[in-house]
Design a protein around this nucleic acid. Structure first.
Length: 342
DNA sequence: AAATTCCTCAACCGCACTGAC
DNA sequence: CGTCAGTGCGGTTGAGGAATT
């Protein structure tokens, strides 16, 4: 049947608001309060759609709007919450007083998203981008034991540019998770160089979930830094404990907590010396794999994330942000143009 | 200095949801 | 129960300024 338009659009002004219109809208709302947007334009003497008035008010004229550059804490919070909530901009905005969903959405799309991509992170899943990572290390870790298959000699950086090899990596990852035996069969069929001495029963995915098989999967973690933990498969049960252990500190509303419970969890690995995670001078608890401080500091901790940086609102540079974002950095082979993936 | 490209963000659009009738 | 008004939300657009050629 279709909805009737929110207002009669004929003769209504569109486009940027003039100061006069802003004044009319502000004055009217100060007297009558927001709401009843359909009749508001007429009553306020505006040639605008009520929807347009509402948007102008909520996104720009509202007195509690906080304008200006996003602080580090805000940016960190956005990244954290986006990892949990996805594109639930209004929910994210609810955790950032004074910021609108529109503003956060714009900032995400123009700044954070690009930075994550530069650092090898898929901005949608917050997992490392397979197509941006060192393929050989991925395949090695896929087998849960780098000694099992020395593919480093098989594949070089060139592999990244080969769609077939990328496809192969995807296949291996899928097989590894779903059917390790089939993976071994696949490898044999494809004549990959398996060390005969290591052709004992391949570690199953479930075996990889025990901490006793330490080499298992840790190489991938160490290679990538931030990995999506899918509950079972790649990571030990202990490791899943890394993920957002303080989520309830971050998310005070039951809605957010519930949504978090339904979302994939993420872990961050600190074992790779090439990943410039925060040093011991920070409150980043890398020793035991706990990332509470990083995850919760934006809200629960009044102290800066990294003592080496002074995070003052609106004063940080992109370089500083880039430095901070190295928390989420992965190894991306040189010569790979990130723009091709954006 | 002019032309072109890139980037930002305010604003729009269409759909979904909720509650009143 | 169905319809509709009101509102909220997320994706997209495009104007205008900045940066680059």
């Amino acid at each position: 049947m279709g909805r009737t338009p929110c207002c009669d659009k004929s003769g209504l002004k569109k486009g940027p608001w003039t100061p006069e219109e802003d004044l009319k809208l502000t004055n009217y709302i100060q007297v009558h309060g927001p709401g009843n947007w359909r009749t508001l334009p007429k009553n306020a003497g505006l040639q605008r759609c009520g929807k347009s008035c509402r948007l102008r008010w909520t996104n720009y004229l509202r007195p509690d709007i906080r304008r200006g550059r996003f602080s580090f804490e805000e940016e960190e919070t956005i990244i954290q919450l986006h990892g949990i909530l996805g594109n639930k901009w209004s929910a994210i905005a609810g955790q950032l007083p004074g910021r609108t969903d529109n503003e956060i959405k714009n900032y995400w799309n123009t700044h954070i998203r690009k930075r994550l991509l530069r650092n090898g992170i898929d901005p949608v899943t917050h997992a490392p981008r397979l197509d941006l990572l060192d393929l050989s290390s991925i395949i090695s870790s896929t087998l849960c034991n780098q000694s099992l298959l020395n593919v480093s000699n098989l594949l070089g950086t060139q592999a990244l540019l080969n769609p077939q090899l990328l496809s192969l990596a995807n296949t291996l990852l899928s097989l590894k998770q779903e059917n390790p035996e089939m993976l071994m069969q696949y490898l044999q069929q494809n004549q990959l160089n398996l060390d005969p001495s290591l052709q004992a029963p391949i570690q199953t995915a479930s075996a990889c979930t025990t901490t006793s098989t330490v080499p298992c999967c840790t190489s991938m973690l160490s290679q990538t830094g931030l990995i999506q933990a899918s509950g079972e498969g790649f990571f030990s049960s202990d490791m899943t404990n890394f993920s957002y252990p303080n989520s309830q500190e971050i998310l005070t509303t039951s809605t957010l907590t519930n949504e978090f419970a339904a979302q994939p969890h993420y872990v961050q690995c600190s074992t790779n010396p090439t990943v410039p995670i925060l040093s011991e001078t920070s409150n980043f608890q890398s020793v035991d794999g706990s990332f509470d401080s990083v995850r919760s500091s934006a809200i629960s901790s009044p102290t800066p994330l990294n003592s080496s940086s002074t995070f003052v609102n609106s004063s940080s540079t992109d370089d500083e942000r880039e430095s901070f974002s190295s928390l989420l950095k992965f190894e991306i082979p040189e010569g790979l143009d990130i723009n091709d993936f954006m």
